[in-house]
Amino acid sequence: MFKKGKSTKNRALPGNESLLRQLWNDPMGRAGMIGVGIVILLAVFAPWIAQYDVAKMHAKDKLTGPSAAYWFGTDNFGRDVFSRIVYGARVSLVVGIVAVGIAAGFGYLFGMIAGFFEGKVESIIMMVMDVIFAFPSILLALFIVSALGPSIVNTMIAIGIVNIPVFCRTVRASVKTVKSTDYIANARSIGLKKMTILFKHVTPNVMAPFTVQATLALSGAILTEASMSFLGLGIQPPNPSWGSMLSDARKYMERAPWLVIFPALFIIMTILSFNILGDALRDVLDPKLKL
């Protein structure tokens, strides 16, 4: 019989190593961790890293290119692009984490209920999820924000709601898969209580796909925030956000390309890092890939 060529990635680690350690030893995981780490560092230490106040307009230095004084140049108001990007990381991360928190929390709850109590409850929950899912997410988020009014909190709520169905489906699907495995039947035959089975056997096996989904959803949420801000319905000025920076830069694209290039680069790097990290997590969390 053939051994399926699963993954030739570095996985010669015993099962007890910490998760971070294992991620670090995987080349892709390391790349993702470094990328995500940079964004987190920028966000946390923004006041120390940024050279200028984000709102300060340097009237004499409008639309100057990258230089020693302004690393990433200045915009049409003479504001320092580098400082705005550093603070923008804060916005992106906070919006991403809170929105995914909302989505993951409700998604997990509904998904567990739907997966565990089959029948009518499941049908109703999944019907509602399908309805939410049917709207293009950006449209739905825009609709929610225009109803609640544009603000950073409402942006987070909107992105959160839009992402609930993804989590709900992931959790429900894995609960159902885990429920039908032999080792759950085995746990019953041993004489375990239903709640014990749920917490000790089902939950840990659901957590892996759930964590991966959360990492991937973070990148999605950051992207949605950027798109919403780009359309003017996300983060409001003078707060810097990568999306709104891009939006403001449109008019000066030809004269001052750095206004577009740097925020775009950071958006791409952040999204890519989270996605790579998510994929690496998937490998690390699969116990069968460990030797």
Binding site: T181, D182, Y183, N186, A187, H201, P204, N205, P287, K288
Partner: peptide
């Protein structure tokens, strides 16, 4: 299949 992969 009958042994939980996450339990030693």
């Amino acid at each position: 299949a009958s042994l939980n992969p996450r339990m030693n």
